[in-house]
């Protein structure tokens, strides 16, 4: 069985696993990192959204063999430390707006929100309603309006 290595939330990890196993299951079933959620395994619901080298992606749809030893994978558990704080400003905004209901989608929502803000900043602008409309993460509790408010607030402190 091959061994795969990468950097997970700032710490190097290695795991013996078949290369076609999607990263989500490596994280959840083998490494016990359960912040990224399974909601479909089809790259649709986005509940597993995490970051690879700072960009949002869905580990349910990436075979672990595609991950390089130098790749930095950040899950919700490691987000705060990327900001050097106890909470990332986006997490704080989520608390301030009491966004969550059941909470199952929210780790993915927060990771998507941070990446979306970074993306528009890289384009030299601030987030718009059109950008928010483009976030595909599903929330079956229907917390969307609070998500939108929290992203706008969180962006101001990023």
């Amino acid at each position: 069985m091959p061994t795969y290595s990468f950097i997970l939330n700032g710490t190097p990890v290695s795991i013996d696993v078949e290369g076609d196993v999607r990263l989500l299951w490596v994280l959840r079933d083998l490494l016990g990192v359960t912040g990224p959620k399974y909601g479909c395994g089809l790259e649709v619901c986005k509940a597993c959204t995490s970051h690879i080298n700072g960009k949002a992606f869905n580990p349910c749809s990436v075979p672990v063999s595609q991950i390089q030893p130098s790749d930095e994978i950040t899950t919700i558990e490691g987000l705060a430390s990327t900001a050097g704080q106890d909470l990332h400003p986006m997490q704080q905004a989520w608390l301030d707006h009491d966004v969550a209901q059941c909470g199952y989608c929210q780790p993915g929502q927060i990771m998507a929100a941070v990446a979306t803000v970074r993306k528009v900043r890289a384009e030299g602008r601030e987030i718009t309603d059109a950008d928010l409309d483009g976030i595909r993460n599903i929330c079956r509790c229907g917390t969307y309006s609070r998500i939108r408010a929290a992203i706008k607030a969180g962006a101001q402190n990023m």
Binding site: R22, L42, F57, N58, C60, V62
Partner: peptide, 9 residues
């Protein structure tokens, strides 16, 4: 499950 997740980052 798809395998093209990195293409959509």
């Amino acid at each position: 499950s798809p395998t093209d997740g990195l293409d959509n980052a």
